[in-house]
């Protein structure tokens, strides 16, 4: 990457590189998705197969599972780059750190959030969620999972230099995920009850806008501290 590459060029190059790396390590990408399916499957097994009950719990279950599976894949965001030293090189690139973090978060979303969008309708059917609610579920996931990747980037950036960052990461990140969970599950819940979901979706959109503009700064600052 030369200094002549623009900001968008750097963004594209970085995303392409990370996607290529992910393609070589498919298991790392697939495992969180399998985890998502298994966690959702556990609920009917634990609670019994009564359709009413499952339908009532479906929004919360799907969203909590989405939170957990997003979190499981977070560590991969900076870890291998940190191990082999390329993260330090990335921080020396003339483009702002903001862009690097944004590219990393976007890649994480492409590999963890986007596949959830494809899996979620099937799992929603298993939990007897009505069709209108499934559509809303997809919209909330589309708006909410990028926020998870962005906030998660801060957590990973803070813990990447630590030897046992895994559990700590969940401790740092999960409380910050709560608003997304409330809005996401709330919207699906309202949709299933036939109520309007405009407010929920607006707030989710606001959270996304907020996270896109601020989280990369915080994560960038955290990265600089971590590689020190």
């Amino acid at each position: 990457m030369s200094g002549a590459t623009g900001v968008w060029g750097a963004l594209g190059t970085l995303i392409r590189r990370d996607l290529l790396l992910a393609l070589r390590r498919r298991a790392q990408v697939l495992n969180p998705l399998v985890f998502f399916v298994i966690v959702v499957t556990l609920f009917p097994l634990g609670l019994g197969p009564a359709p009413n009950l499952l339908q009532k719990l479906a929004p919360g279950v799907l969203w909590v599972a989405a939170l957990l599976s997003a979190m499981l894949s977070l560590e991969a965001m900076f870890h291998s780059d940190f191990e082999d030293g390329s993260l330090e090189q990335l921080l020396l690139v003339p483009q702002p750190v903001f862009i690097i973090v944004l590219a990393k978060a976007l890649t994480h979303w492409l590999l963890s959030g986007l596949p959830l969008l494809l899996l979620a309708p099937i799992l929603a059917l298993w939990l007897h969620l009505p069709n209108e609610a499934i559509l809303v579920l997809l919209i909330t996931l589309a708006l909410g999972t990028p926020v998870l990747s962005l906030i998660g980037a801060i957590g990973v950036a803070l813990t990447v230099g630590l030897r046992r960052g895994g559990v700590l990461l969940s401790l740092l990140v999960l409380p910050l995920y709560i608003p997304v969970l409330i809005m996401g599950a709330g919207a699906v819940d309202s949709a299933a009850a036939g109520l309007s979901v405009g407010e929920h979706l607006s707030i989710l959109g606001a959270l996304l806008a907020f996270a896109v503009t601020l989280a990369p700064w915080a994560a960038g600052a955290a990265l600089r501290i971590s590689v020190e």
Binding site: L158, L176, I178, P179, I182, M183, I203, L207, A218, I225
Partner: peptide, 22 residues
């Protein structure tokens, strides 16, 4: 100190959001 400072600031920004969403 520096790493946890970043976390504290992120947390402080999030506290009102969490409070109102709850």
């Amino acid at each position: 100190a520096r790493a946890s400072a970043v976390l504290a600031i992120v947390g402080a920004v999030n506290v009102p959001i969490i409070y109102y969403s709850v």
